[in-house]
Design a protein around this nucleic acid. Structure first.
Length: 865
RNA sequence: GCCCCAGUGGCGAAAUGGUAGACGCGGCAGACUCAAAAUCUGUUGCCCGAAAGGGCGUGCUGGUUCGAGUCCGGCCUGGGGCACCA
């Protein structure tokens, strides 16, 4: 028996695809396009199983769509700027650029060995000046359009990476990458006006019907729109008026205090002559980010000597507190407190003994006796004790109160967003230089476009903390483009989320040296039809990209609102964890499970098997894809990735699983190379008639072609693989029967032999998206010379998709009692009669007459007695 | 606390409101083999039964329906997201 030589075969076809440029594509408006994109990788040096899963999903879709006649754009690139390169420079003395390009070369090789149907001629790396020069241009255009600005601001400072983090990059008060406690620092920073598009970004989520609901909700929460009203309190003691924001102007008559953030300018001012207040503010800042989460945040306040006058009631003075639960970053940094209808205000009021006056009474409650106790009432109801608002509903009350405030000139109805502008300055070397120059005389001067790109200097050192660009002896010293005097280059670089905010556009026209991309190319290829990646980018990358696309449209680059029409978020690849007797994590490859219990391969000492969790280097529960690709091959790895678990769920990597995939590949190979009967030559015309056995084989094949296509369209890859197996199992069974016939020197009918060839050819074609190398080898082995990737998806014969007979279940009172084989679409009374005649059914009916008989054609008959 | 998602055999999982457990992994039995590996065949939700057959089964609980894993209400458990957002 000839063995399937996986290494040779896979390398052979990869070389052929490469040589014939099989996957290179051109825009062609006469053909329907589809754009399949997986989130591009950071070039860390080696691919991991998450990549294998990600790129397999995309590749199956790309190959399938291609067979379906689409012009498929399926590119690959590298998210090549970022801190790990600088860390490598620090640790190993290798230049970040060298390290990055070497990693790219290594990972490209690994990805190519997966047999991906990628147009490698479109490959890009974001760290190349040919790429980021256009990013610099875009930034300058944003600057002109008022979408980029500079401001002094409190920033999140990561003390480990020595850089600023965006709000989105701070998780539980810690840096998203380093996990270090984030500090507050004040720096002058570049910001992009994502808030300009807040409403649009929110509203357009509704149009993204091919995105997971979950991601849309996450973005919705992140944008955090709320309707309300801003208004001013007059303050005692000659202080400036205090602006507050509220979503509940209807509850103004229930107000019992006003509170400002410890970071509010008024708090600082009041603290000047008040050491006690100063100490309170300092305490709040210490609590700030770090312990807030742990300490369950007790409400604390400091009563200032200032009072605020109620906007509707002259002479009604409310005490002004500095309170730890009021955030400077949201709204105006000041609130009014209505304890009866806000839980935080209520906690605060109970602690400081402030009045609690309900002004919203739930319908059906007695207004005279309604009391909130220790749980604020936030539901609907009728306003009471509220003068001109009395009797109104909450919604009516909001409108009326805003109307009154506006009438009095005290404030205005407004919409508030949680979303804040995107701070993009980073104090790092390995990023895109921000193309501006600081001149003492002229201020911030954009680098003239003719001088773009501003490139990074090569000769940098990483021996001291902070930004190497800042320390470079000459790089930052330039003449002002405006006045010609000595000036200073901006030494900050962009947040690397910027590069990934437009790479999907560059893929449409990656070699353009004049502009970032040709408008028509983008018009043809975009939006991305299938964007595939991890859920961890649900907010950051995806929101930034949506913003960036809008900002580009605003500047006339393109005519597109949403870059990603379809989004799919894949699950993680998990693996069991192992610890040795000392509790140290150990690699799966060092564990021997053969004896039924886990022991160390090296010395046989016992190993504890831990929970199945996401593969991570720190827990060592990783399996290196390269080893798998070398021993089992790309097809087996791809098959395993697609089998069993639905792609949006976690997938547990197991030895048994990859073994199973490998066995199946060999089974398919044997099916084609040793069918056991003599097949007609390739291209033999179909016989005029098919007998029952031949028809059964054809049915199985055509059903599989149809079903697998449907499943791939819906990302139901595990189900598609199941259908492949059902088909190949059926074909295998049919073949062993036919082989036995031939072995007994009986004739195998020409119709049967022809049907088997057809089935094997269809099989080759429909396993192709998942197992492309094997498929091509099967195809050749069936006597063809051409490439399967050039062949269309096999068209299913509609007549073969439906059976002549239907298996109809018969229930008596909802319980299954029999199944009947009836002609397809048998008349209802025929089905009914057949059901009532069945002995098992009669027995279950126990002689009682049927009260009612429900007949669902081709499915079920339910007899009610 | 709020918002999502998920709970089905020993395991991964399938099932337009219509035969629950397809397909695979693992197990068991057998064939081939001196033996093993590989491969092939059969079997495999639970309980009663020698069998035929019967009963019970999709986290719990109530409902809608001729019929519910699927739809609706309440609850439990697990996972994820947001979290003093005024």
């Amino acid at each position: 028996m000839s063995r399937y030589n996986v290494r040779e075969t896979e390398a052979k076809w990869q070389a052929v695809w490469d040589e014939r440029r099989s996957f290179a594509v051109q825009a062609d408006p006469s053909r329907p396009k589809t754009y399949v994109l997986e989130m591009f990788p950071y070039p860390s040096g080696r691919i991991h199983m998450g990549h294998v899963r990600n790129y397999t999903i995309g590749d199956v879709i790309a190959r399938y769509k291609r067979a379906k006649g689409f012009n498929v754009l399926h590119p690959m690139g590298w998210d090549a700027f970022g801190l790990p390169a600088e860390n490598a420079a620090l640790e190993r003395g290798v230049h970040p650029g060298k390290w990055t390009y070497e990693n790219i070369a290594a990972m490209r090789g690994q990805l190519q060995s997966m047999g991906l149907a990628i147009d490698w001629s479109r490959e890009i790396a974001t760290c190349r000046p040919e790429y980021y020069r256009f990013e610099q241009k875009m930034f300058l255009d944003f600057l002109k359009a008022g979408l980029a600005y500079r401001k002094e601001s409190w920033v999140n400072w990561d003390p480990v990476d020595n850089t600023v983090l965006a709000n989105e990059q701070v998780i539980d008060g810690r840096g998203w990458r380093t996990g270090a406690l984030v500090e507050k620092r004040q720096l002058s920073q570049w910001f992009l006006k994502i808030t300009h598009f807040a409403d649009e970004l929110l509203g357009a989520l509704a149009t993204l019907d091919r995105w997971p609901e979950k991601v849309r909700i996450m973005q919705e929460n992140w944008i955090g729109k709320s309707q309300g009203c801003r208004f001013f309190f007059k303050l005692s003691g000659g202080h400036e008026e205090l602006e507050v924001f509220t979503t509940r102007p209807d509850t103004l008559f229930g107000a019992s205090f006003v509170a400002i953030s410890p970071n509010h300018p008024l708090a600082a001012k009041l603290a000047e002559g008040n050491a006690e207040l100063g100490e309170f503010i300092a305490e709040c800042n210490r609590m700030g980010t770090s312990e807030a989460a742990l300490e369950q945040a007790e409400k604390k306040g400091f009563r200032t000597p200032v009072t605020a006058e109620h906007p509707f009631v002259p002479g009604w003075e409310l005490p002004v507190y500095v309170a730890n639960f009021v955030l400077m970053e949201y709204g105006t940094g000041a609130i009014f407190g209505c304890p009866a209808h806000d839980q935080r205000d209520l906690d605060f009021a109970r602690k400081y003994d402030l009045p609690v006056k309900p002004v919203v009474v739930p319908d059906g409650e007695d207004p005279a006796s309604f009391d909130v106790g220790n749980e604020a009432y936030t539901g609907p109801g009728t306003l009471r004790n509220s003068r001109f608002l009395d009797g109104l509903s909450v919604e009516e009350g909001k409108k009326a109160a805003i109307g009154k405030i506006e009438e009095l000139g005290r404030g205005t109805g407004t919409t508030m967003f949680r979303l804040r502008d995107w701070g993009v300055s980073r104090q790092r070397y390995w990023g895109c230089p921000i193309p501006v120059i600081h001149c003492e005389a002229c201020g911030v001067v954009p680098v003239p476009e003719a001088q773009l790109p501003v490139t990074l200097p090569e000769d940098v050192t990483f021996d001291a903390p902070g930004n190497p660009l800042e320390r470079h002896p000459t790089w930052k010293h330039v003449d002002c483009p405006s006045c010609g005097k000595a000036a200073r280059r901006e030494t900050d670089t962009f947040d690397t989320f910027i590069e990934s905010s437009w790479y999907f556009l560059r893929f449409a026209d990656p070699r353009n040296t004049e502009v970032a991309f040709d408008k028509d190319a983008v018009k043809y290829w975009l939006p991305v039809d299938n964007y595939i990646g991890g859920i961890e980018h649900a907010v950051l990358h995806l929101l930034y990209s949506r913003f960036w696309t809008r900002a580009l449209a605003h500047c006339g680059y393109l005519d597109l609102a949403e870059p990603f029409a379809g989004l799919f978020t894949q699950g993680m690849v998990t693996h069991a964890t192992f610890q040795d007797a000392e509790g140290k994590w150990i690699f799966p490859t060092d564990v021997d499970l053969a004896s039924g219990k886990a022991v160390k391969r090296a010395d046989g000492s016992p190993v504890t098997v831990g929970p199945v969790i996401k593969m991570s280097k720190s827990k060592k529960n990783v399996v290196d894809p390269e080893g798998i690709l070398n021993s089992y091959g790309a097809d087996a790895a791809r098959l395993f990735m697609m089998s069993d678990s639905p792609p949006d769920r976690d997938l547990e990597w197991t030895e048994a699983g990859i073994d199973g995939a490998w066995r199946y590949i060999n089974r398919l190979w044997r099916l084609v190379t040793e069918p056991g009967i003599t097949l007609p030559a390739a291209g033999t015309p179909a016989p005029a008639e098919f007998g029952a056995d031949a028809t059964a084989i054809r049915r199985a094949a055509h059903k599989a072609a149809h079903g697998v296509a449907e499943d791939i369209e819906q990302y139901r890859f595990n189900s598609a693989v199941a259908k492949l197996r059902i088909f190949s199992n059926a074909l295998g069974d049919a073949l062993s029967k036919l082989a036995a016939k031939q072995g007994n020197s009986q004739d195998v009918g020409a119709d049967e032999a022809w049907a088997v060839r057809e089935a094997l050819e269809i099989l080759s074609q429909i396993v192709q998206p998942v197992m492309p190398h094997l498929a091509q080898e099967m195809w050749v082995s069936l006597g063809h010379q051409d490439l399967l990737v050039e062949r269309p998806w096999p068209a299913a014969d509609a007549g073969l998709l439906v059976e002549d007979t239907a298996t109809v279940a018969v229930q008596v009172n909802g319980k299954l009692r029999a199944t009947l084989a009836l002609p397809r679409d048998a008349a209802e009374d025929v089905a009914k009669a057949a059901a009532l005649a069945d002995p098992a059914v009669r027995k279950a009916m126990d002689g009682k007459p049927p009260r009612k008989v429900i007949v669902v054609p081709n499915r079920i008959v339910n007899v009610v007695v």
